[in-house]
Design a protein around this nucleic acid. Structure first.
Lengths: 325, 325
DNA sequence: TTGAAAGCGCTAACAT
DNA sequence: ATGTTAGCGCTTTCAA
C-alpha cells in the first residue's frame, strides 16, 4: 500500500483538508502547521495521486497527439516542439501513431476520451467526418497541425500554395525555364493540391505555359527515386526539380547520383520541409523550410494557453544550400 | 456533464453494480438485462471513465517512455516498436523527452509516479543512482532499452563489443589494414567503451598493434564531420573508418564529399545502427544494423507481458551497401 | 440474478 | 486556522 494523504494527516495531527490545502497552496493554515505538514510529507516520501485528483478536478494534465507515423524526421521535430511546451506547462503527452488507419484512429480517439485527456493535437492527417463527430462530442479543445479541415477546428500550418510558389520562383530567378515537380500523393487536398497549384501558378506568371512537368509520389524516399526516373523519362528537358518533401528530394538525389547526373550542374533540386535530412544530404539540399519544431510548440501553446480560436499561419522560408546554383 | 454509469443504470432500471458487471463481462445477470443495458449504453453513447477505474483498480493502462531525444531516427524507430506493442495491448504511452537533463528526468519520474503509470521504459540513457532510487520506490516494472546498468533492471540491447568487433573484422576481410574509428562520447560506458574495445580487439587479433586510430565525437552528425577531419589529419594512412553511429558516418561522408575524397575507393566507411539514414545516404551506407524497431517491441513486450526478468540480447548484423568495396 | 453500500485518494464546501 | 463531510465515477464485497 502506498502512502496517501490520510497517512500524512494522521502523522501530522491535522485533517486531510489541511494537508490538501498546503499541497495546493491554498490559504488557511499557520506557518507552523505548514512546516509540520511539509516535514511529514518529506519524511514519508508522500506523492499525491494524480488519478484521484483527476477524478475530482476533471483535469488530467495530459494531452493526446495523433499522428500517422513517428519514424520520420518531420514528425520527430513537430513532436519535440509539442513535448517541450507540454513539459513547461506540466502536461504529459501520450502519442498515438495511427498508421493512417481510420480504425486505429477511431480506437485512439475513444481511448483518449476514456482517459479524459484535456486536449488533442491532430497532426498531418485528413480530418474525416467520422473523426470529427467523436471529437466534437468530447468537448475538449483540438488543434490541427500541418493540416486543416472544413470543420471549425483551428490549425497551425504554413501556406502551402505560397511556399510552393516561392520555391518555383526561386528556381525561375536562378534562370531555370524548364522545371519539373515531384508532387505528393495524388488527390491529397492538404499537402499536394496547393503545392501543385503554386507550382503551376509560378510558371504561368512567368509566361511559361508548357504542359506542367509533374509526377506524383507519396512523400517518401522511394517515390523520390522512382519519381525522378519517371520525370526524366517523360520530360528530359527539365533542368530543375521541385520536390514536395525533403524525403523525396533525397530520393531524387540518390537516383541522380546513381545515374551520374551532377547536382546542381545538370539538374537542380529543391526540397520541402527542411527536416534535418536536408542539411545532411549530399550535396546539402536547398529546400523550402517549414518551422517544424515551432509548429509543434505553437500548436501546443494554443491548445494549452489560450482557448484555441484563430488559425496561425507560420512563415516558410527558402533555405539555400547547394543543390541549386 | 457527461454521461456516467449512474445515468445508464437509471435508464435501464438496474443498479450501477449490474451495469458494471456487464461492462466488465462478469457473471451475474440475465441475457435480457445484458441486452437492455448494452442498448442503453449505445443509445446514450456512454463511455467508461478510465480515471475512476484507475483509482480503484490501481491500473492505468499506460506506460512511460523516457528517452533523451525524439528528433532522431534511432529514437523514432524504437518508439514505433514500443507504440505498436502498447497499442496491441491497449496501453497508452506517454513520452518523456529528457534532453539528457538529470533534473528533467527526475521531474518526469515524479510525474509518472503521480500519474500512476504501470511501467517504465528507459531508453538510451545512463541509469544514475538517483534515478534508480526513485524508480525502485515506485515498485513498478522497468526495462532498459539500448542501455544497461549495475542495478537489477532487465535490459534489451545488442552486444556492442561483438557488433563492433564484427564490423572491424568485416573491414579487415575486405583487405583494409589501416582502420580508423570515430567513436562516441568519451567516457560513455554503454555505447562507447564496448565499441572501442571491440575495435581494438579485432585489430589485435589480426596482429595489428599500431596505436589505435581513434577520435571521439558525440554520435551526432556534426562530430562526424569534425571527427573525419581530425582522423585524416592525425592518421592520414587510414583507408577505412568505422563510425559508432550512422549519423556520424553520414557526417563523415559529407566531409569526404566536400574534400573530393571518393568513397569507397579512397576511403571506406561503416556506420552503426542502420537507421533509415543509412540507406538514403550517398553512397548508401554499409553499417552494422541494430534491430531498432524490434528492440522497442521486445522491451515493451517484456514490460507488459512477462514480468520482466532476464535480459535479452538482440542480434546485430552487418548490412552491406556501397561504402565499402 | 440483482442491489445497497463502502471506499479508491483526493478536493471543496460548510462548519466551527 | 482547522476539521467534517460529501462526493468525483467506478468496482466490489455482502446481502437479499
Amino acid at each position: 500500500m502506498s502512502i496517501t494523504i490520510k497517512d500524512v494527516a494522521r502523522q501530522a495531527n491535522v485533517s486531510v483538508a489541511t494537508v490538501s490545502r498546503v499541497l495546493n497552496n491554498l490559504p488557511g493554515y499557520s506557518e507552523d502547521t505548514k512546516k509540520k505538514v511539509l516535514g511529514i510529507i518529506n519524511d514519508l516520501g508522500y506523492q499525491p495521486n494524480a488519478i484521484a485528483r483527476g477524478l475530482i478536478n476533471k483535469k488530467t494534465k495530459t494531452i493526446g497527439v495523433l499522428l500517422p507515423n513517428v519514424s520520420n524526421l518531420f514528425a520527430a521535430d513537430v513532436l519535440a516542439g509539442i513535448e517541450d511546451i507540454a513539459h513547461e506547462m506540466d502536461y504529459s503527452v501520450v502519442i498515438c501513431k495511427t498508421d493512417k488507419s481510420g480504425e486505429r484512429t477511431l480506437k485512439y480517439l475513444q481511448m483518449l476520451r476514456e482517459k479524459q485527456v484535456d486536449g488533442i493535437l491532430f497532426v498531418s492527417e485528413w480530418m474525416k467526418e467520422e473523426y470529427y463527430e467523436v471529437i466534437s462530442r468530447m468537448s475538449i479543445p483540438v488543434v490541427l497541425v500541418s493540416t486543416k479541415s472544413d470543420y471549425p477546428l483551428p490549425y497551425v500550418k504554413v501556406n502551402d500554395f505560397e511556399a510552393s510558389y516561392d520555391a518555383v520562383n526561386y528556381l525561375l530567378n536562378k534562370g531555370h525555364r524548364s522545371i519539373g515537380m515531384i508532387a505528393g500523393t495524388e488527390g491529397d487536398l492538404i499537402a499536394t493540391s496547393p503545392r501543385v497549384e503554386g507550382f503551376k501558378k509560378a510558371l504561368l506568371d512567368e509566361g511559361i505555359d508548357d504542359e506542367p512537368a509533374i509526377v506524383y509520389g507519396d512523400f517518401a524516399f522511394e517515390t523520390g527515386i522512382t519519381g525522378m526516373e519517371e520525370l526524366i523519362e517523360k520530360y528530359p528537358e527539365v533542368t530543375a526539380v521541385f520536390c514536395a518533401s525533403d524525403e523525396m528530394a533525397v530520393g531524387a538525389l540518390s537516383y541522380l547520383y546513381k545515374k551520374n547526373i551532377r547536382v546542381p550542374d545538370q539538374i537542380a533540386v529543391v526540397g520541402y520541409d527542411n527536416t534535418s535530412a536536408a542539411e545532411k544530404a549530399i550535396p546539402p539540399l536547398t529546400t523550402v523550410g517549414q518551422p517544424l519544431y515551432e509548429m509543434g510548440r505553437s500548436a501546443a501553446e494554443m491548445l494549452l494557453k489560450k482557448r484555441p480560436t484563430s488559425n496561425v499561419v507560420l512563415q516558410h522560408k527558402i533555405i539555400e544550400r547547394e543543390t541549386v546554383k
